[in-house]
Design a protein around this nucleic acid. Structure first.
Lengths: 347, 347
DNA sequence: GACGCCGACTAAAGCGCTTTAGCGACGACA
DNA sequence: TGTCGTCGCTAAAGCGCTTTAGTCGGCGTC
C-alpha cells in the first residue's frame, strides 16, 4: 500500500530521491526511453511501485504532451439520450477501447450545432482533448471545416463514404436498407411506409434514397414521413401512414425507439403484427428484441462500432496514418416475427 | 473570429502584451480578483475576446487548482449499460448540470469493484478528477473508506440514508416500495412474486426488506427471486415464479429492463396482463411506458436525480458545506394498465 | 512635511513534469 | 597515445498558468 507522506503527495522528485537518481532518469525510465540501464530502471520502477506514484496528468500535458482524453459532443436534447440504445452502446464501445489505452472519454451534451462548435473551440484552446468524435453528420455540415481550421483532430461517424477533410468511419446504410427493402418485396409488400429521421442528417437522407431506389427497382410504392426521431413524432407518423387511402402493408422505422412507438400505435389501432401489417426497424437493439413480437431489424454491433471509432481516433491523435474512410461492417438483416407475407385482402 | 498566429497558439503572455499589462494582471482579471481597475479589466477582456484565448487547462491545473473534471466509474459489463435507461438518464442529468459550470464528466466502465478502486487510485494520483460519483453501493462496500483514505472527494448515490464517511444522495426506496405493495394489496393480491436485483446491493436489499415488511403487515405472501439484473435471469425468475404451486397473481420487478423480459415471458405463456396476472416495475422509463399494456411503475425523474448528484459533487469539490445525506424525491406510484384486481378464480 | 496606507500593478517563483544540452567514463580505433 | 563515439546519466530550461511578495505613486492624517 501507499505510504502517505505528510502533507503533499509524491512527485517525481520523491521517486528520484528514493531511487538515488535524477528526475530526468525517472522520466526516461517511465517513458521507455533509451539511456537508462536495466538495473537503474528496475530500481526506479520499484520506487514508483512502493510509493504508488503516478505522474500528474496536468504537469504531463503541460509539457506539450497529450491530454490523453478524447471528446464527444452530442447536439441533442439531453433527456432523449437516455433512451437511445444506439448512442449508449456507441459510448460504451468507445469507452471500452479508449480505456485499455488509459485514454479518457469526455462527454458533453449541448443544444445545437453552434454550441457544439463552441465546445470544440473551447476544448482546442484549453488543450483539453487530443481529438474528438463527431456524430450525426449533416448536409453542408460546418463542423469538419471548423475542426480543421482549429487544428483539433477528429473522426466522423457516418458521412457518405467519400473521402473528406478528416477520417470517417462509414457503414453502408444504403446497402443495408436495400436488403431490408428486398426482404419486404420478397414477402409481396407493395405499399410500404417509412418513418424516417431528420432529413438534414446525411445518414437519414441516404436511407431514404436507398429505400426509394429499391422501391423503384422492385415495384414498391414507398411513402416516407420524416420525424425528429422522437417517439411522439414516430407515433404521429405511424398514424398518418395508417390513415392513407392506400394503407401500407409494411412500415419501416429508422430507429428502434421509433419502431417501438409504432408497435404501440398499431396495438391501439387493433392491428395485428404481422397478420395485418408488417413492421421492421432499421436499428436493432434489446428494445426491439423485447417487443412482442420481436421486430425484424438490421443488426449491427454498435458497441463494436464504438470500439472501431475509438481505434481510429487513437491512431489519429498519435499521428499514425489513418485511412480517409474506415469501413464498419454493413448492418445485416435479422428476420424476426414482425414481418410476414402481405395479407391476402390487401395483396 | 480568432486570428490564427503563425505556429503556436496564444498564451497569457500574448494577451498581456496586447493589453499592455503583465500576465499577472490578465490572470487577476480573468479570475475576478481585486486590484485591477475597471478600465484595465475591460481592455484585458477585449484582448482575450479578440484572440479567442482560453487558459490552458493543464497549466491551470498544475498550479494546484482544480482539474474541473468529475469522474464516474461503473463496475458493470460495458455491453449491458447501453440498455439501462436508469444509467443513461443519470449520466445525462449529471452531464447537464456539470456542463453549466464548465466541469467535464469523465466516464469509465470497468469489470469489478477492485478495478474501480484502482481507477480511483489512479485518478487521485494523477490529479485527473476533482471528485467522483459512486454508484451501486454494496453492503460493507470498500469504496467509501478507500476514497477517504486517498483523499478523493466523492458523493454516493444510494446508500441507506444514514450519515456515512461522505455525502450521499438518498432516495427513499423503502417508502416507494411500500406504496407499490399497498397498491397491490388494495387490488386484492395475496400471492406476490418479486424479481429482485443483486442482493449485495444496498438498494436491492432495502427493496426486498420493504416489500416483505409490507407483506407481513398487509397479509401478503411475498416470494423474492434475486437476479443479476440481466434479462435472461429476469426471464428465468419469472418462469420460476409461474411454476410455483401457489402461482403469484402479481409480479414486481426491480428494474424496467427486467420487467420487459417478464412481459415477454408472460406473453409466451399465454397469460393476459392484467387479466391473468398483474405486473409492476420499480423503475419507470420510456421502456415500460412503451410496453403493451404500459406498466405500472414507481416514477422518479432520474435525469433530475443526476442533476442533484452533480450539484452535490460540485459543492463538495468547492469546499462548500454539504449535508451528509441529500434527500432526492421519493419515487411515486404511477398506475398504468398492467395492474388490476386479482382474478376471481385465484382470489 | 513626515508617515502610513491603499489601490493598481509587476517581477519572479513555483506547480511537476519533459526535453535538450552536456558531462564523465569507458572502449574502440587509428 | 590521442581521438572519437557511445552509454548512462544529470543540470537546467521550459511548458502556461497562479500566486506571493513586492513596487510605486497618490492621498489622508496629524
Amino acid at each position: 500500500m501507499t505510504t502517505e507522506r505528510p502533507g503533499r503527495r509524491a512527485t517525481i522528485a520523491d521517486i528520484a530521491a528514493r531511487a538515488g537518481v535524477s528526475p530526468t532518469a525517472v522520466s526516461f525510465a517511465l517513458n521507455d526511453r533509451p539511456g537508462i540501464s536495466e538495473h537503474t530502471r528496475a530500481r526506479i520502477l520499484a520506487a514508483v511501485a512502493e510509493l504508488g506514484w503516478r505522474p500528474n496528468v496536468a504537469a504531463r500535458a503541460l509539457g506539450g504532451r497529450r491530454a490523453d482524453t478524447v471528446g464527444l459532443v452530442v447536439a441533442r436534447p439531453a433527456r432523449t439520450l437516455g433512451i437511445e440504445p444506439f448512442f449508449a452502446q456507441l459510448v460504451s464501445g468507445l469507452q471500452a477501447r479508449l480505456s485499455t489505452d488509459l485514454v479518457a472519454l469526455q462527454l458533453l451534451v449541448v443544444e445545437d450545432l453552434s454550441a457544439e462548435v463552441d465546445v470544440y473551440r473551447r476544448w482546442a484552446a484549453e488543450r483539453r482533448t487530443d481529438g474528438v468524435v463527431v456524430l450525426d453528420l449533416e448536409r453542408d455540415d460546418p463542423r469538419p471545416d471548423e475542426l480543421v481550421r482549429m487544428g483539433l483532430p477528429a473522426v466522423l461517424v457516418g458521412g457518405d463514404g467519400t473521402p473528406g477533410p478528416m477520417p470517417a468511419v462509414f457503414a453502408d446504410d444504403h446497402a443495408a436498407m436495400t436488403s431490408l427493402a428486398e426482404h419486404l418485396a420478397a414477402l409481396g409488400h407493395v405499399h410500404v411506409g417509412h418513418v424516417g429521421g431528420i432529413p438534414a442528417y446525411v445518414h437519414s437522407a441516404r436511407r431514404v434514397a436507398a429505400l426509394h431506389d429499391a422501391g423503384a427497382r422492385l415495384g414498391m410504392n414507398i411513402t416516407t414521413v420524416p420525424t425528429d426521431f422522437s417517439q411522439d413524432e414516430a407515433a404521429a407518423a405511424t398514424r398518418a401512414l395508417l390513415a392513407r387511402d392506400e394503407r401500407p402493408t409494411a412500415i419501416v422505422y429508422d430507429s428502434d425507439v421509433a419502431a417501438l412507438a409504432g408497435v404501440t400505435v398499431l396495438a391501439e389501432a387493433g392491428l395485428g403484427v404481422p397478420g395485418d401489417i408488417s413492421l421492421a426497424s432499421f436499428d436493432d437493439s434489446e428494445l426491439v428484441r423485447l417487443a412482442h413480437p420481436p421486430l425484424t431489424a438490421m443488426t449491427r454491433d454498435t458497441f463494436e462500432l464504438g470500439e472501431l471509432v475509438a481505434e481510429t481516433v487513437l491512431s489519429l491523435v498519435r499521428g499514425e496514418s489513418v485511412p480517409d474512410v474506415v469501413r464498419a461492417p454493413t448492418p445485416e438483416l435479422t428476420v424476426r416475427g414482425s414481418t410476414g407475407r402481405v395479407p391476402e385482402v390487401a395483396a
